[in-house]
């Protein structure tokens, strides 16, 4: 392995990377917020006893969890416009694909969290005259959300990594920009290594934080 690493060219192109990183962060921000807030609504719907709410929620979760994200993105990019006549930009196609998938996954996380709260809490809420919505908002959710924090953070990490899939429909993000640099300068080793390192550097502290949160929560639950 006597390869001469050349990171100089990469540094000359730092602006290209920077634009990509902004694209990655934008994609992550939008899909994480949409996915995790939408997931909460669907998760609560799935928890309800009313079939008219629970069944569509269940169907939603099954469909968007079981179809690979890449297939969804491609479908929204190539098929959706034909079906609806609405043009989808690379950004929109990727946002739709990743958000819907995230909604489905986080819905299941929220539901598990809500289910993990002891029945007695519901009864206590009812006993002091609170409605379903009040009990859910004031008593159940605060406990449930705390418990699902590690799972939700893990999902967030997955969402961040998923943003690279947007490069497949030529959305400008980090991997897409790295491909550009690699093709122009014939330095795939440095470019792709750089992307890997960027993701590792960003996500490693987050992963470590989830371990700390998990340990803290398991202690405070006792």
């Amino acid at each position: 392995m006597d390869y001469n690493w050349d990171f100089a060219t990469l540094f000359q192109n730092w602006r290209v990377f920077w634009i990509g990183l902004q694209g990655t962060l934008l994609m992550f921000g939008v899909t994480a917020v949409l996915g995790m807030s939408g997931g909460l609504v669907i998760g609560i719907m799935r928890y309800m006893k009313t079939p008219i709410l629970a069944w569509p929620a269940r169907a939603f979760v099954e469909i968007f969890r079981n179809v690979p994200v890449l297939v969804q993105i491609i479908w929204f990019y190539y098929a959706f416009p034909i079906l609806t006549g609405v043009e989808t930009s690379p950004f929109l196609a990727a946002v739709l694909g990743i958000s819907l998938n995230t909604m489905a996954f986080s819905a299941e996380i929220y539901r598990a969290g809500i289910q993990s709260v002891e029945k007695g809490q519901w009864e206590a809420g009812k006993a002091i005259g609170m409605s379903f919505a009040q009990t859910m908002r004031r008593i159940i959710l605060p406990v449930a959300l705390k418990r699902v924090l590690p799972a939700l953070t893990n999902r967030g990490i997955e969402v961040f990594k998923m943003s690279t899939l947007a490069s497949v429909v030529a959305y400008v993000e980090t991997l897409n920009q790295a491909k550009l640099i690699a093709d122009l300068n014939y330095n795939p080793i440095e470019s792709y290594t750089a992307v890997a390192v960027i993701f590792f550097v960003v996500l490693y502290p987050v992963v470590q934080a989830t371990y700390v949160i998990e340990r803290k929560l398991s202690r405070s639950d006792q």
Partner: peptide, 10 residues
């Protein structure tokens, strides 16, 4: 922590 697509390209 690194995206599978990046690993694949690498």
């Amino acid at each position: 922590t690194t995206p599978p697509l990046v690993q694949l390209f690498w």
